[in-house]
Write a protein that binds this DNA or RNA. Structure first.
Lengths: 196, 196
DNA sequence: ACGATTGATTACTGATCAGTAAAGAATGTA
DNA sequence: TACATTCTTTACTGATCAGTAATCAATCGT
């Protein structure tokens, strides 16, 4: 150990992730990352490795940080945790009309790179498994309370597809109204699972 | 009118679209398009314009060609047209394990470019409207036959999200089994709309 | 047959890309 | 204080990128 690093690698990684999240991987140049972090390229390479490593670390940061906090809220709930997430997504889109159009970093990266970069597709497997775990846990909690009946595995799948559909619509240019409509319809599906 | 063009611009466009569909926009170089079509770059530029124009024309070809044929099948049906599409998607994924991982060209392009390229996001609006029209028409046909009851608009939204979720999972590296599970669950949702 | 027009072919831009070499600066340890 | 180690800074590489200029070839109208 010698000269200490003069910047916060966690903060810089969050800034890097935000650029990939907004622009996508291929459309992002190292120069963009220099601008976003204020760090010269050689510092970025020294701290994070090659550009693809930067994306991997961005996804890991995003999965274990912002997303994990949501996963845990869904884990510890019933189906209201699922609807909470859906309405939160639509709420964010509406609250920041020009800014909250990034969708989900993992979904975006998967669509762009999963069929060429195994490091990305592996993280996609983790993502799907974690989302499904959260939804399944929430559904099981509601089932245990007698709030819902029926095939939990199938509903886990459905909730996943609804979520992905919303994310894609947001990143794909859907208006706040469009997203709000989708969220409302998605919530309607989840609510319909309540036993009569 | 003078010297006639020596290649089939429709065929070449289909080949170009396939490259964008598989690799994405930014990851595709003009050299890749030369390889796929067998045409020198100057010919491509003369026939289709800039790279972004090539993508626009690819999307238009895809929307008005392959996709439109599916849309029409869904239009002219009831809810079985919706389930047919879902099962067809899963079937293709299973039949060509290594190849049918392209998902949907429009969805892929939207996720990659909608927030920077208005030409792409405009086509996304068209796409969403056309998909919704097909689903709505199918649902209305089933409602008219008394097969289903309930909110058609909400179910149109749900079918759209299910479709997008499947496409994203396919392009995002989901296995044939994963996709088959999702399709089965999605079909279950649509079937559940049948009046008891 | 001839001129005008358009397509085909080749070779070539300048710009930007990801990544790095090398030298100076700051710290911990002895 | 001196050395080893790590970080910072600057400048630079070769490769690849999208797009084009210019020349040649072929066809149509006359």
């Amino acid at each position: 150990m010698a000269r200490p690093r003069e910047f916060d690698t966690g903060l810089a990684l969050a800034q890097i992730a935000d650029v990939f999240w907004t622009q996508g991987y291929e459309a992002t140049s190292i120069g963009d990352l220099e601008d976003a972090t204020g760090l010269a390229r050689a510092r970025l390479y020294a701290a994070y490795g090659a550009k693809l490593d930067m994306l991997h670390k961005s996804i890991d940061w995003y999965l274990n940080g912002p997303l994990e906090r949501i996963f845990e809220r869904v884990d510890d709930s019933g189906i209201e945790g699922i609807t909470m997430w859906f309405s939160m997504i639509a709420g964010l889109r509406k609250a920041e009309p020009a800014k909250a159009t990034k969708g989900c970093l993992v979904v975006n990266s998967l669509v762009e790179l999963a069929n060429t970069e195994t490091g990305v597709s592996e993280r996609g497997e983790l993502y799907r498994a974690r989302v499904r775990h959260a939804f399944r846990t929430a559904l099981e909690a509601s089932a245990a309370r007698g709030e819902i009946e029926g095939d939990i595995e199938a509903r886990t799948n459905v909730a996943l597809m609804l979520l992905l559909g919303m994310f894609v619509t947001i990143k794909g240019g859907g208006s706040a109204e469009t997203v709000a409509d989708l969220a409302e319809s998605a919530i309607g599906v989840v609510e319909s699972w309540r036993a009569a």
